[in-house]
């Protein structure tokens, strides 16, 4: 590789990183927040077997999990204007990516809810708790702990999938890189460079996941303290 390539590599770093910080990350945060709210609702109506809503949740998951994310982005951004619905590209990206991931995360959360022994729910009723109280105090805290690692997985996956938004003109990292490639014609170093920045972001998320998991199992710390007290 020649000196020009390395020069472009060095000069482009800021140009790629800035849309990463200003678009890729906020986009991920917004889409994942939407995803969590929708996923939790979809999981809860199935867990509680709410008639009607439960079937709706199955239908929702069937549609969003069964079609490609890119196709969904195209339908919303390029297709909907045909019937007079014009959505800003960033809003479209947040909505579609968030709603798509909600289908997967709903299944993760539902499985985690169902992993909490039903006996604890019965015990909750017998000690005078209401259904809402049992969910909030007993079932959800345990389920979220179980769901945390797979949900972190989805978050990292989503961070990378925001690059699909380049296809609907969102000026995120990949879109910016494509522009620089068109100008400088150094595709190899530039695409490797953007890949490395994605890798750095994912690495930070992985580190955060580790910290989060340790925090969720704080009662292990308490145990050690108790054992010390016994000794």
């Amino acid at each position: 590789m020649d000196a020009h390539a390395w020069q472009v590599f060095a000069q482009s770093f800021d140009d790629i990183l800035i849309p990463g910080l200003c678009m890729t990350i906020p986009l991920t945060i917004a889409a994942f927040s939407l995803c969590m709210v929708v996923a939790l609702l979809l999981a809860m109506v199935q867990y509680a077997k709410v008639p009607g809503l439960r079937q709706f949740a199955r239908f929702y998951i069937w549609i969003f999990r069964g079609t490609p994310l890119l196709v969904q982005l195209f339908i919303v951004y390029y297709g909907l204007p045909r019937v007079g619905i014009v959505i800003h590209e960033v809003v479209a990206a947040i909505a579609v990516i968030g709603l798509n991931y909600a289908a997967y995360c709903a299944e993760t959360i539902r499985a985690a809810l169902e992993s909490v022994p039903v006996g604890q729910v019965e015990a909750g009723y017998c000690t005078g708790l209401s259904y809402i109280q049992i969910m909030r105090r007993i079932v959800l805290p345990q389920a979220m702990k179980t769901a945390f690692p797979p949900l972190s997985n989805s978050l990292i996956s989503m961070l990378k999938d925001t690059s699909l938004a380049a296809n609907i003109t969102v000026m995120e990292m990949l879109q910016k890189t494509k522009q620089i490639v068109a100008r400088t014609y150094e595709p190899l170093v530039l695409y490797i460079e953007v890949g490395l920045i994605y890798l750095a972001f994912s690495t930070i998320l992985t580190w955060l996941q580790g910290r989060g998991e340790r925090r969720l199992s704080t009662h292990r710390v308490k145990r050690r303290r108790n054992e010390n007290a016994d000794a």
Partner: peptide
């Protein structure tokens, strides 16, 4: 069927406080 995310004491008090 103890609540696994609660201590022994919390298992006892949960119903007293909420129920």
């Amino acid at each position: 069927n103890l609540f696994s995310n609660k201590t022994a004491l919390e298992n006892v008090t949960e119903g007293l406080i909420l129920g």
